[in-house]
Design a protein around this nucleic acid. Structure first.
Lengths: 224, 224
DNA sequence: CGGAGTTTGTAACATTTGATACATCCCTAA
DNA sequence: TTAGGGATGTATCAAATGTTACAAACTCCG
C-alpha cells in the first residue's frame, strides 16, 4: 500500500494533501517495485520513459568512465524522484546507472500516465516545472563558475557572491578541501591562491573567516 | 494581428496547426509588444514572470560582468522563446539583459495564462517540457565535458564521440579557433596538443581531417 | 597566375597549477 | 592537561597551459 503521507512530501507532489493525492493517484496506472540491496535499478543508457520516485530507502547513481571503472555520483533518498530532467527532452536516456543502496521501494509511473497527472493538477505541474527549471538554472550557474580560468577568479567570484551586499566579513561554509573540490582544483593550490590574495591586501584570511578588504580590486580580477 | 503560421513554428507551439493555435490563443490573455532597435526589453535580474516569444526580428542577450562591461551572450531570432528555463524554478529572474537588435515584436504571456495553455494542450505541454529538459541535458553534457582536466582528454573525448562506431576518419566540423573556444583553451595550445597526439601515433592530423589510429590508447587517455 | 586574407603549424618563454611533502594550528577525547 | 587526528599554511619541483610571435599552407578572387 502506498504511503500517501510520505509521497506528499516528495518534491513532485509537495503542497498536495494526502487525501487529494489518494484521489488523484486512483485515476492513473502506477506500480510500486521493490529492489534488494545492490540490485540494479536502471542501467546508464536505458531509455527513460517512466518517472521513478524513491519511496523507501535510498539508491545511488553511478557513472562508468571510459575504462569501465564506476564512480559514485550521488545518493537519492526517499521521497525524491530519479532523473526528473531526463524523462523528457531529446536524449531521454539515463545518464547514470542506478543501484539500490539497501532494500528500497520505488514508485513507477509511465510517461503518458505522468502527463495525465501534470494536466490534471496544476500543483503537480508547477512542482515539476519548478524542479527541472531549477536544475537547469543550477547547471547554468555551475557552468558560469567553471568558465572562470584562474583560481583567483573563482575565489573572487565565490567570495563576492557569498558576501553580497552585506558586511565584508564572510564565514566560509565549506572546508578548504571541500571548496577545492567544488572549484575543481587541488587543495594546496587553493590555499596558495588565497594566501597570495591575502599578501596582496585584497582579503584577510583567518582560517574559515575571510574579510574582503578591497572590493574594487576583487571585481577587477573578474575582468578577464 | 498575430501571425499564427509563424507562431506554429516556434519550439513551444510546434506540431500544432495554425487553426488550432488560433482557437487556443483566443482563450488566454496575451499581448504583442513592439520594441525599437537598441531598446531595452528586460533587464538582468528582473523577475521572469511572463513568457516572451520573438515574433519578428531578433534580440540579443547581454551579460554584465562585475565591472559593468557587457558582453554579448547570444542572439535569439523569431520565432524562438526567451529564457524559457527561467519562467519557473527557484531563481526565476532573467540571467541576462535583453536588447532589441532591430525593430522587433514580442508575444508576451503571463505565467498563469501560460500555465492554462500547458494544461489545455498536451502538445504544448510536451513541447515545453522537452525544451527545458533538453536544455538541462545539454548543460549536463557540457559540464561533463568541462570536467576533463587536460586538453588531450578533451580532444580524445571529442574525437571518440564524433567518430562513434563509424570509420576512423573524422572531418572536424569546427575550425581550430572555434574548437579551442569550445574547449575553453587557446588555439596554439590546442594545435600543440593535437600535434603531440599525432607524433605519438594516436591520431593522424591533416588540417581538418583526423584519422584515429589507436582507439585503445585514446580511450586510456580518459582514465584520469 | 598571383596576391591578400584566413587558417593552421610551431617555437620560445612566462604563468599557472598539480603533486608531494611537511610543519603548524585547532579541536576533541581520554 | 595532553596526545592524536584532522584541517590549514607553506615550500619545492614538475607538468600543463597561456602568450606572443612568426612561418607555412590553404582559399578566394581579381
Amino acid at each position: 500500500m502506498l504511503d500517501f503521507e510520505l509521497l506528499a512530501k516528495s518534491p513532485v507532489f509537495m503542497g498536495i494533501s494526502a487525501e487529494r493525492l489518494f484521489e488523484i493517484m486512483q485515476q492513473v496506472h502506477y506500480q510500486v517495485k521493490g529492489f534488494q540491496k545492490n540490485e540494479l535499478v536502471v542501467h546508464a543508457g536505458d531509455e527513460c520513459n517512466r518517472l521513478f520516485i524513491v519511496l523507501e530507502g535510498s539508491v545511488k547513481g553511478e557513472m562508468a568512465d571510459y575504462t569501465g571503472k564506476t564512480i559514485k555520483i550521488e545518493d537519492i533518498e526517499a521521497p525524491r524522484p530519479l532523473a526528473a530532467a531526463f524523462l523528457f527532452g531529446k536524449n531521454n536516456r539515463f545518464p547514470v546507472t542506478v543501484i539500490a543502496n539497501e532494500q528500497v521501494s520505488l514508485l513507477s509511473i509511465s510517461k503518458p500516465e505522468f502527463l495525465k497527472l501534470l494536466q490534471q493538477d496544476s500543483r503537480i505541474l508547477t512542482n515539476y516545472l519548478n524542479s527541472i527549471s531549477s536544475r537547469a538554472q543550477f547547471l547554468s550557474q555551475r557552468i558560469k563558475f567553471l568558465s572562470f580560468k584562474t583560481i583567483r577568479q573563482k575565489i573572487a567570484h565565490y567570495l563576492l557572491d557569498l558576501a553580497g551586499d552585506r558586511l565584508a566579513v564572510v564565514e566560509l561554509p565549506l572546508s578548504q578541501a571541500q571548496l577545492a573540490e567544488f572549484f575543481g582544483v587541488t587543495r594546496p593550490s587553493l590555499a596558495r591562491a588565497m594566501g597570495e590574495l591575502d599578501h596582496e591586501g585584497l582579503i584577510e584570511v583567518q582560517r574559515r573567516s575571510v574579510r574582503i578588504l578591497d572590493k574594487q580590486k576583487m571585481n577587477e580580477l573578474l575582468k578577464g
